[in-house]
Amino acid sequence: MTDVVTTVAVAMFAGAVRVSTPFLFVSLGECLTEKSGRINLGLEGTLVFGAMSAYAVSYLSGSPWVGVLAAGLAGSLFGALHGAICRLPKVSDIAIGIALMLFGTGFAFFLGKGFIQPTAPRLQAIDLGFLVSDPQLKVALQINPLFFIGLILAVVLWWGFANTRIGLVVRMTGDSAATARAMGVSVDGVRFWATTVGGFLAGVGGAFLSLFYPGSWNEGLSSGQGLMAVALVIFSRWNPLACVAAALLFGAAGALGPALQSVGISQGYHFFNAAPHILTLAIMIATSSSKRSLKGAPGELSITK
């Protein structure tokens, strides 16, 4: 029995590290966008499109890192589109996000049809297995470099929001557009760039999906990770470091289904696969309140008004 528990625990730890990376990138991107006072619900579409472009470019160029870059650039195009449309008056950022979600997935399926069959070169993991002797842990410690890049990025964002001029301008724009305007800052410009960079990060998150884990391109690749990451930002109270913790938690929840299957528990695996969705909903219910506005929420954010 303890063996089973250990196996599941190790698998969930490995899963947390493995599955969390796309959550991490999307949530960091969304965190940046929301800090500027806009919400981009379209990151689910960006994620899927990023996954497709990464796989296709990796296959065509032979280099997975070129694929990652392509995914980022494709993602930033989607972000830029969102940013550009939302600066028009009377256009809802939430509605545009929904439209981009549907358009991004549809366009990815359209262009990616021909890349379902071929095998593209994947990203290689950094093997930290030498640190431990347990064979299971050895496998679990094969960690993708993107995970570490994500961690560094989270620290940089956290530090940058507090200590740099750009960080301050983004936060000011998000908290009060009127103040930003009074200071001579272009509100639409700041939001445009925040959404574009946010889209870049979400695209890279998609590249992880298709080039590392699960490591293939098909139409069922993402089941709402991009959208859950948006909820995760709210749960993290717009703090990039908290995004890391939340992404790990979601990764562990996402690994629950496969971990239980690996020890032969397959009964009800549909529900275990839906564990991240249920967890997201539960967390949203537990941490929201109708009595007070959320602590740390950017004042201009339409979703918390």
């Binding site: 929904i98 709210i234 997201t280 909903l281 949203m284 929201s288 309140s289 109708s290």
Partner: peptide, 8 residues
């Protein structure tokens, strides 16, 4: 609970 209806 003021849970966002779109995401929920």
């Amino acid at each position: 609970r003021a849970v966002n209806e779109t995401i929920a």
